[in-house]
Simulated assay, not measured.
Amino acid sequence: MRTIHDPFSGLAVFLAVAESGGFTPASAHLGVSPAAISQAVKALEAKLGVALFVRTTRHVRLTEAGTALLSRVKSAATDIAEAVDAAGSAQDEPSGFLRLTVPRMAVPLFVDAVVPALRREHPKIRIEIAVEDAAVDLLGRGFDAGVRIGEYVELDMIGVRLTRDIMWSVVGSPSYLATHGLPQSPEDLAAHENIRYRFPTSGAIYRWEFERNGRSLSVDPPGSLVVNDGALLVSLAASGLGLSYVADIAVETELRAGLLVGVLQPYLPTTPGLFLYFPRRAQNQPKLRALIDIARKVCRV
């Protein structure tokens, strides 16, 4: 009997290791042992005659050949996965694996509200959620959909509104403001301790945006605390360590409880709110349609 040649053998494991950055996280993602992952990668490397990964005791990284292979097969793998999902679209109950990327501010607004409802109504859908504030290449990272502030959603994506527009806020604790006083204009921030945000991807420090007489004003305030996590901007400000520039929807609870106080409101801009976004060609997948329907029902924007 002639042996059947399978050109896809080992590619799923290769993609899992390349995307997760290691054998252990890949094994958790695929539900097999790290030893099985290692064995599958070695078999693929032997079949291709090249090393795909450089392995050390601490890190696993792609070789030049591995990088080239990833760039060729990633988009094809996405197409295949979408084709398989489409083939099952006639079934009554949506199913499959749904990978989502969500910024930290959207956890209480989206994850805590939408995901439980989705699980209750469609238990056959398996969900993985990556919480990260950095900009994300959905297709390149293998995500089905993401949640981001509207102005950061790529133009070639479809967006579904989840929240009202966002008003940006400068907030501080009552104790901090009692000690240092309330700034009356953006220029007054130069005399305050400001908690600044560094973009995880670019490494740039975020400049605080204001409006005056219909014109935009960008300020880079001084501060000895820099973070790359939105939740820390809120918690550190609530601890009295300085002023933070945050979205109002991220501090509603703290403002109501009196843990934080908003300042400089006349100068603060409004921007599009949070959106669920996804590639146009993926919108008819049953698992994604189920997520969209639940999100619209729960968020009611």
Rank of each mutant, 00 (worst) to 15 (best):
V226T: 15
V263M: 11
L217S: 10
R256F: 13
V263T: 11
T270G: 02
D248V: 04
A282T: 14
L264I: 01
Q285W: 09
L243F: 07
L276D: 01
P272I: 05
T271W: 02
P279D: 08
E254A: 15
D229R: 15
D220W: 00
L268Q: 09
S224Q: 09
S216L: 03
L232N: 04
L243W: 03
T270H: 10
N284W: 02
V246M: 06
R215I: 04
P222M: 04
V219Q: 02
N213P: 03
D220A: 10
P269Y: 12
R256C: 07
F278Q: 00
L232G: 01
P266C: 08
N228D: 14
G230T: 09
I249E: 13
V219C: 01
S244G: 10
G230A: 06
N284L: 08
F275T: 08
A282Q: 14
I205N: 06
P269R: 12
A257L: 15
T271A: 13
I205G: 05
G203W: 09
L268I: 08
A247V: 06
Y206G: 07
L232F: 01
R256Y: 12
Q265D: 15
V234K: 02
Y267W: 10
F210T: 06
V251K: 04
S216K: 03
R207I: 00
G262K: 12
F210G: 03
G203V: 06
R281L: 05
R215F: 00
L276N: 06
A250G: 06
